[in-house]
Amino acid sequence: MTDPTIGTLRVNGATLHYEVRGQGPLLLLIPGGAGGAASFDGIADDMAAEYTVATYDPRGMSRSTLDDPEAEQSVAEHADDAFRILERLSPDEPARVFGSSSGAIAALHLLTAHPERVQRLIAHEPPVVEVLPDASEHRGLIARVQATFHTEGLMPAMAVFAAGLKKAGDTTEPKAETKLPPQAAARVERTMANLPYFVGRIVPSFMSYAPAIHQLEALSDRLVLACGQDSRGELPYRPAAFLAEHLGTELRHFPGGHTGLTTHPAEFGERLRRVFRA
């Protein structure tokens, strides 16, 4: 694995940690969930053979520190952070962007707020549940997760959250986790440390975000909506499928499920390259 060039960037209310590898046109990778730049360790080196690959820890995660640790979080501000990174690393050319999960939500806002900076966006399972016909049900889930987090703590809240993401009618216990690659296993400790912030600040803010669908309609030629091939029926799959149908674009399927980037890195990276070339 190649050591990346490390940088820091002052933004409104935070200092971002970012990493750059390779050379060529810029590819910005926006992590989701409780992950940071390290989420992309499994694919960044391979992608760097073709692109200047940049990724970062979102504000409040891992090495990207908040000036006020109690500050409320917003999709617009996280998207502006991505914009600032693009301005620093590719000031003269629009970039390719990939975002996963909550990172894909920030990426959708980036596309609508700064379309001139994005050549193509692949948004993998953005849980923008507000676009769904049963959005009110999912608002109830978010409220239950927050109530459980504040009264019972992190792990009970995560259990409520995980149950709400499962396929409708699926009452089975979670399957045994796919054995993670060594790099991914080593990241678990940092990811666990980010979970309280993710559950308490990111989940309620990001999952109540409603994208500007009329703007996405106008930009649909540079937006690719993607899902895990094993995610069909799960909650994070549904908004991407709904938006692809609404926009009249092809829904692309990637290896694995919601976390296919981690469980199937080689296949995921190859699929990512193919979709960006298409």
Rank of each mutant, 00 (worst) to 15 (best):
E77M: 14
H78L: 14
H78K: 05
D80H: 14
D81T: 11
F83M: 13
F83D: 10
F83T: 04
F83R: 15
R84L: 10
R84W: 07
I85V: 15
L86R: 03
L86Q: 07
R88Q: 14
L89T: 07
S90Y: 00
P91F: 05
D92A: 13
D92Q: 13
R96P: 00
V97H: 08
V97K: 08
V97P: 02
F98Y: 15
G99Y: 13
S101Q: 04
S101V: 00
S101H: 08
A104C: 06
A104D: 01
I105V: 14
I105C: 09
I105F: 07
A106D: 10
L108F: 04
L108N: 05
L110F: 09
L110D: 10
L110I: 02
H114A: 15
H114N: 10
H114M: 03
P115V: 02
E116I: 04
E116F: 02
E116K: 04
E116W: 02
E116T: 06
R117G: 03
R117D: 07
R117M: 07
V118P: 00
V118K: 04
Q119K: 13
Q119T: 11
R120Y: 00
R120T: 15
L121Q: 10
L121I: 12
I122C: 07
I122K: 05
A123Q: 08
H124M: 12
E125Y: 05
P127A: 15
P127G: 14
V129K: 04
V129D: 02
L132M: 13
D134Y: 07
A135W: 13
E137Q: 11
H138A: 04
H138E: 03
H138F: 12
H138Y: 14
R139E: 03
R139G: 05
G140L: 02
G140A: 09
L141V: 06
I142E: 00
I142N: 03
A143K: 09
R144Q: 15
R144L: 08
V145P: 06
Q146W: 00
Q146D: 03
A147C: 00
A147N: 10
H150P: 02
H150M: 06
H150S: 11
T151D: 11
E152R: 15
E152D: 12
E152P: 02
L154K: 08
P156W: 01
P156L: 01
A157H: 06
M158H: 02
M158A: 07
V160T: 08
F161C: 02
A162V: 01
A162G: 14
A163D: 09
G164V: 01
G164C: 02
L165T: 11
L165C: 09
K166E: 12
K166D: 10
K167R: 15
K167W: 00
A168N: 02
A168P: 00
A168W: 01
A168Y: 01
D170F: 03
D170A: 08
D170T: 13
T172A: 13
T172V: 06
E173Q: 11
P174L: 03
P174Y: 05
K175P: 12
A176G: 11
E177F: 04
T178N: 04
T178G: 01
K179Q: 12
L180Y: 06
L180G: 05
P181G: 02
P181A: 13
P181Q: 11
P182N: 12
P182Q: 12
P182D: 13
